[in-house]
Design a protein around this nucleic acid. Structure first.
Length: 798
DNA sequence: AAGTACTATATCTAGACAGCATGTC
DNA sequence: CTAGATATAGTACTT
């Protein structure tokens, strides 16, 4: 189809597309247009990665935005990183007056309110949250596009997407719904659910050959074979990487664990190293240096070492700066190999000439062994092969080490159709969250109303039998009522004040209940007590250190009155055991170590400690303790490298934990405030400490922009203890504490509100323990966290 | 004594969304 | 119903 023939789009669009070199639509795009996607029709497009889904979305959104006075389009993505990536793509339309905005949990576009934007990109949870909080512009939407809609199959996050789409469609009867999916077996059911036209196609702009390597040959799905020799002492993967490099192509290797990714990258770097020219070596060395600057950890070092040889690993333990450095270097063809966990299969666009799916089984504790990856997941990985416009074709390869496995892999993955996508809504965690939110934001006010609302979900489309859904619904309504989030009056359901708060805070009601119980228990019991005793003990013999409150004595005059506030560790533990925080893995030896810690610090925990004999619960509780101590270490200014070492995590994991803790403690503060509890200041302090990674005495200083944990400590040690001190202090001392960096010092003073921050002519004072010439490089803007990676003064992910 | 090659054994396991408030002349 | 790669310690053998 000629671009000039597309109906319903703005006048400028055909010219724009031609400028971009697009003269004709790809077949699936043309099908979408014929199905009316530019004329308001609902559409489900099930097409391979990189086959032009984005243009379909753009056509839909632009036609919707251009059409009406207040038309507005929403683009829903599964990951924050995709939100920014997509928004950047859409910004090409800003020159035609189409404003693009982003909204995710940690980032809102600057330059005005979302209501002023024409296209808004957001994660599904953010959209859900915006609906719960009555964002006014939601009713102005004329088009919603959902990317990667097959993720409704995900047990954890799928229900959110499903319910959110149902809500958007209920709010706005005329809403055009476009859903983009990977190729799946039952796209027709999704179309059925969304009352949509269906484009179901396997067409790709670049040929993709799937195959299996076995022995000395690559067996391709078209029946052909290529000789691909594995040399002595060389791994199969290395042989493929070498073969691809001989043709000047790069390889993406998917493996099943972080450790495997790191080991594979290290080994493969000796293969790739031989193929680098002098320029590449130099640029890679620069990138390696940037990587080391991101964080001073072993992970960072290992990554930099591999990168110097032209290989890299990629997984969620990396800091986000690490990840984008790797992604960019791979796109620029500097890196010849990236060994990745599934982060990269679902994440930002990083195509490659060849893809090797090295591991097709992954450990799964719930099945007690290695479970095969789903066909969809493997196909998603394979779909990364072939860079549009750069490669003549893509190849995706599985590895077999027996003839039987060769056959099995062809059956199981190469020739197989992806599993059908199934709604996971009828599960307790999903329903307790979404039932409460649905009632709280007024979509239903009775059990029948709820069930009627649930008719709009994919679950209802896929399941004729409503029994299961009703059964779980009833159980969860009881749960919500018992915990005082919902009130029932006859048939009527109403959210309590608390229920509204929980829904708006975006907490799992079970997390809220845990937090509320913990905080209340603490206040009721005077800071420690019976309930912090091991539940399995009868109480005749109190463990040592059990009666701290009596030692503190001052207010020990009864049941009420001010209490000793909970400790940071206690609060971190409280939020760490909530279902909204995912658990750290307990390694061998950890169990003993944390059991001991649990008894040493018994008085600090909020709520009862489960008995050691309740295996599962106790283990979860210990795992939360491990997380809590990690957070406490972070909030005690322990070095990042020490923490990654001690807990066996990567720098990215620390950031992730810190971020979740900030959110949950923020929520805890709101709940405590609403319930009139006394611990609000303690909660706030624990949150601020974890946010900046500082002890309490630095909280004020670390709140100054440009001052992170390291700089705050240096300033403090130089005698500057508060933001106010910063406004008054001797500039020489400030400059000395900041290791002689003038720009940094000026910026910090300015951010602290000092009248004249200029450092002209100021000589840094000598300060004990600070080497004025060491470390910190001055890159010009001085006050950002980036010039001193250890500062970690900002949490920005983008 | 140090290096090498090999084997037995222990260890460990993917990912990642969400609140709020509020600034500055 | 279902494990396998890697790190590490240990061992035998060579140089």
């Amino acid at each position: 189809m000629d671009v000039a023939a597309i109906p319903g789009v703005p006048d400028w669009l055909p010219g724009h597309l031609e400028d971009e070199g697009i003269e004709a639509l790809y077949p699936p795009q043309a099908e979408a247009v014929e199905a009316g996607v530019t004329e308001g029709a609902n559409l489900v497009a099930s097409v391979p990665t990189a086959s032009g889904k984005t243009l379909v979305a753009e056509l839909a959104m632009l036609s919707a935005v251009a059409g009406g006075e207040s038309g507005k389009a929403l683009y829903i993505v599964p990951l924050r990183a995709l939100a920014s990536e997509k928004a950047e793509e859409f910004e090409q339309f800003e020159r035609y007056g189409v404003e693009v905005g982003v909204s995710t949990g940690n980032y809102d576009s600057d330059g005005g309110w979302l209501a002023d934007k024409d296209i808004i990109v957001a994660t599904s949870e953010k959209v859900d949250s915006l609906v719960r909080n009555d964002a006014a512009w939601i009713e102005d939407l004329s088009c919603v596009v959902t990317d990667e809609v097959h993720l409704v199959d995900d047990g954890q996050r799928g229900p959110t997407l499903e319910v959110t789409l149902a809500k958007l469609r209920q709010l706005n009867a005329g809403l055009q719904t476009v859903a983009l999916s990977a190729t799946i077996g039952n796209a027709d059911e999704l179309a059925d659910w969304l009352d949509a036209e269906l484009v179901d196609s396997n067409w790709r702009p670049i040929e993709l050959q799937k195959g299996v390597h076995y022995g000395q040959a690559l067996h391709l799905e078209d029946g052909s074979q290529q000789r691909l020799e594995v040399r002595n002492g060389e791994s199969e993967t290395a042989a493929i990487v070498r073969d691809t490099l001989a043709d000047d192509g790069s390889t993406l290797v998917f493996v099943n664990s972080r450790r495997n990714a790191e080991a594979a990258a290290r080994r493969l770097s000796s293969t790739t190293r031989d193929f680098l020219d002098a320029d590449e070596r130099e640029t890679l060395a620069e990138i390696a240096a940037e990587i080391r600057d991101v964080s001073d950890t072993e992970t960072s070092d290992d990554l930099a070492d591999a990168v110097e040889g032209g290989a890299a690993f990629h997984h969620a333990g990396l800091a986000s700066d690490h990840r984008s450095l790797i992604e960019d270097a791979f796109r620029d063809r500097l890196l010849k190999v990236v060994c990745a966990t599934p982060t990269l299969a679902a994440g930002v666009n990083t195509p490659s000439r060849r893809v090797v799916v090295r591991d097709w089984r992954r450990y799964d504790g719930s099945t007690g062994g290695m479970a095969p990856l789903s066909v969809l997941e493997v196909h998603q990985m394979m779909g990364r092969a072939g860079r549009p416009g750069l490669d003549p074709y893509g190849e995706a390869v599985l590895l077999a080490n027996s003839h039987d496995e060769l056959d099995e892999l062809f059956e199981r993955y190469v020739w197989a159709d992806p599993e059908p996508v199934r709604s996971k809504l009828a599960a307790e965690p999903a329903l307790r969250t979404h039932l409460l939110a649905t009632v709280a934001s007024g979509f239903a006010s009775s059990r029948e109303g709820l069930l009627e609302f649930l008719e709009r979900t994919l679950h209802a489309t896929q399941n004729a039998d409503r029994n299961e859904l009703e059964r779980v619904t009833d159980r969860m309504l009881d749960y919500l009522e018992v915990n005082d989030f919902l009130e029932r009056d006859g048939d009527q359901l109403q959210a309590t004040g608390l229920g509204h708060t929980v829904s708006r805070l975006y907490l799992d009601p079970m997390s809220a209940a845990e937090i509320i119980d913990g905080l209340r228990d603490w206040e009721r019991s005077g800071g420690r007590t019976e309930s912090s005793r091991t539940a399995g003990e009868t109480g005749d013999e109190e463990p040592a250190g059990f009666t701290r409150a009596s030692e503190l004595a001052a207010n020990d005059d009864g049941d009420d009155g001010p209490r000793e506030p909970p400790s940071a560790l206690g609060l971190y533990h409280l939020v760490a055991r909530t279902p909204d925080m995912y658990e750290l893995y307990l390694r061998s030896g950890d169990e003993d170590e944390y059991t001991q810690l649990a008894f040493e610090r018994e008085t600090e925990f909020l709520g009862p400690m489960p008995s050691e004999y309740e295996d599962d619960r106790f283990e979860d509780w210990l795992s939360a303790l491990k997380t809590a101590r990690l957070l406490e270490d972070w909030a005690s200014e322990i070095d990042e490298s020490e923490i990654t070492d001690r807990y066996g995590v990567g720098p990215g994991d620390i950031r992730g934990k810190v971020e979740t803790t900030q959110w949950l403690l923020g929520a805890a503060e709101s709940l405590a405030g609403e319930l009139g509890l006394n611990c609000v200041p303690a909660v706030r302090e624990a949150r601020t400490r974890v946010e900046h990674g500082v002890r309490s005495e630095l909280v004020d200083l670390a709140g100054v922009r440009g001052v992170g944990r390291k700089r705050a400590r240096r300033l403090y040690d130089a005698g500057i203890r508060t933001r106010a001190d910063l406004r008054e202090a001797d500039k020489a001392v400030v400059l000395g504490a900041l290791r002689g960096r003038e720009k940094t010092a000026e910026n910090v003073l300015e951010n602290a509100g000092r009248e004249n921050p200029s450092m002209d002519g100021v000589e840094p004072a000598e300060i004990d323990g600070i080497d004025a010439t060491a470390g910190e490089s001055d890159d010009g803007d001085g006050a950002t966290a980036a010039d001193d990676p250890e500062d970690q003064s900002s949490l920005g992910d983008f």
